[in-house]
């Protein structure tokens, strides 16, 4: 089972701007928890604080049950498209210490192959990263997050460049990972997807506007992108 994540009184100030103000968040083991809210509301900042990448105040606790491995899927991978790095090179770079130019080590081959297969990237191991489409790169970012096997998966809006087929692969995988007991923390813009796939949500716009089970917390106005207008049904 994945970890429980508790965030209490999270504050983040950058320069003179208060980005996050007393944000509380809780994700239970094995659930899909989405962080939603307007653009610039602090969703990614919340994730980055949880990952220890931004100077913040407040308490962030993980209660790990099994391994403490986090699979992180960023929004995009900026890449010099002419750089001679293949899909396998990239996977080697992320999972092993032996320099990627020596190739993927034997002990990781099966795990990497399975991860690529789960994302529909089988047979593209020798393709240059620069020749992958935006959607394929995002699938690759998901694949690297699966090796070594994580108990917590953190997604930062990684679905922006996906086509319909890619989206289906992503969604099926999220359901599979949830069924395997992994905790999933997900910044997501697609309210329809949030409604279908998440168990709980936290709505952040500098402060927490609402949080609780998706079914009762995600209002109709939120589904249309209005996060402050209608707070009916909020389980605060």
């Amino acid at each position: 089972m994945g970890p429980k994540i508790s965030v209490k009184n999270l504050n983040l100030t950058l320069g003179t701007t208060r980005v996050l103000d007393s944000v509380d968040l809780e994700a239970k083991p094995g659930e899909v928890h989405c962080i939603i809210g307007p653009n610039g509301g602090g969703k990614t900042s919340t994730l980055r604080c949880i990952l220890g990448q931004m100077p913040h105040t407040g308490d962030i606790e993980f209660e790990w049950e099994v391994n403490e491995t986090i699979g992180y899927i960023p929004q995009v991978l900026e890449f010099d498209r002419f750089l001679p790095v293949t899909v396998n090179n990239f996977m080697a770079m992320t999972v092993q210490t032996t320099p990627a130019f020596f190739g993927l080590r034997g002990i990781f081959k099966d795990e990497v192959h399975n991860a690529l297969k789960r994302l529909g990237l089988e047979g593209k191991e020798k393709r240059m990263m620069g020749s992958l489409s935006g959607g394929e790169k995002q699938r690759l970012l998901f694949a690297q997050a699966l090796v070594p096997e994580p108990s917590l998966i953190i997604l930062d809006e990684p679905m922006t460049a996906l086509d319909e087929a890619g989206m289906t692969v992503f969604e099926e995988l999220i359901i599979e990972l949830k069924n395997e007991g992994k905790t999933i923390l997900w910044v997501n813009h697609d309210m329809e997807q949030v409604g279908r796939l998440s168990d709980t949500i936290t709505v952040v716009d500098s402060q927490v506007i609402a949080h609780g089970p998706t079914e009762t917390t995600l209002t109709e106005s939120m589904r249309h992108g209005n996060f402050r207008g209608d707070l009916k049904g909020v389980a605060a």
Partner: peptide, 21 residues
């Protein structure tokens, strides 16, 4: 350079991902 090659390259490609790793 040899033991840190992957880390240095990953850090330049995606610092956030490298940090999590």
């Amino acid at each position: 350079g040899i033991p840190l090659f992957n880390k240095m390259l990953l850090a330049s490609l995606n610092p956030a991902l490298a940090h999590v790793r």
